[in-house]
Design a protein around this nucleic acid. Structure first.
Lengths: 154, 154
DNA sequence: AGGCTATAGTTCTAAAATAGAACTGTCAAA
DNA sequence: TTTGACAGTTCTATTTTAGAACTATAGCCT
């Protein structure tokens, strides 16, 4: 597979996978949403090799998920901040966290609880239809070819 | 990193990543939701090597995402069907598809359109709070340590 | 019977990615 | 002047993946 052009496939899943479809990238993004911003912060909390961390951060910057922002002039130091495009990955991360909570839990209970500041309650994320607001289930969805479809891929 | 025990980390994201956190697995799951069930079906639509496909399918069966069901006795042939645990991955896949639609699109438009059979309309998936029903944004969520938390990981 | 095709894999070697550790460079503080 | 913090880069060994060939079972055709 030509992973280097996966982001140009006529399939939105492939394009997303091209950006966030590996283990380290997803774990790095988790840290971003937990307010980690600096190289040493990612490295020490994830125990990722510095080489791979450097490479993954570059890739996330290249795709516009993170912005590399100077926070010190001498010596030059940078931190990595989520862009809007990066913030928009939140539903993906939360959907993964929720699935793990439900299906991969152990007797200890959940590692993290999430509070919705707006309503003040502990919550779970729920995916609904933008049109009718009902909870979405795979079996209630029918797929049509769209204008960007080019071949027999989704 | 010890990827072989990632599914036991005190972090729901890590546990999910242990199961679906690689490119081929996500693409295989896309095919599952598009009703592909058989080895040759996955292989020809994804152009994945037979070796890796075999390995990934075994892993998905081992984690209870797919069930290997005989559909022919002589010769013995099996197909791979999503379990409920597998069907519950739908929000993850849809969140990724939607992010790709919004942020990785090109001038051709979307590769696929999704129709909600329940209301009959083309829709986008939206993630809302289970308690108040409002749309969720990363900045409105506060994270607390839960009972299953063991160390400084999310 | 002998050969072709379909399906679902397994086995092999070469190429690519990752792990783990050491190294570089800048500057501040002791 | 030495130490430490930070943000990387470079190196080799190990692991994973790609790509192609091979195996096995059985139906169908002649």
């Amino acid at each position: 597979m030509k992973w280097d052009t996966l982001d140009e496939e006529p399939c939105s899943l492939s394009r997303t996978v091209a950006v966030v479809g590996d283990r380290w990238t997803l774990l790095i993004l988790r840290e971003c949403f937990l307010r980690v911003r600096r190289f040493e912060g990612f490295q020490s909390s994830l125990q990722i090799t510095r080489h791979l961390l450097s490479e993954r951060l570059k890739k996330l910057v290249r795709f516009g998920i993170l912005r590399r922002v100077p926070y010190s002039e001498a010596p030059k130091r940078y931190e990595y901040i989520l862009t809007q495009k990066g913030l928009d990955l939140y539903p993906i991360i939360m959907a993964m966290v929720h699935w793990g909570d439900i299906h991969m839990g152990d007797e200890r209970g959940r590692p993290l609880l999430h509070e919705h500041k707006t309503c003040g309650k502990l919550f779970d994320p729920v995916m609904v239809c933008s049109e009718c607001g009902e909870v979405l289930h795979a079996k209630q969805v029918h797929v049509h070819a769209g204008p960007g479809r080019r071949e027999a891929v989704g």
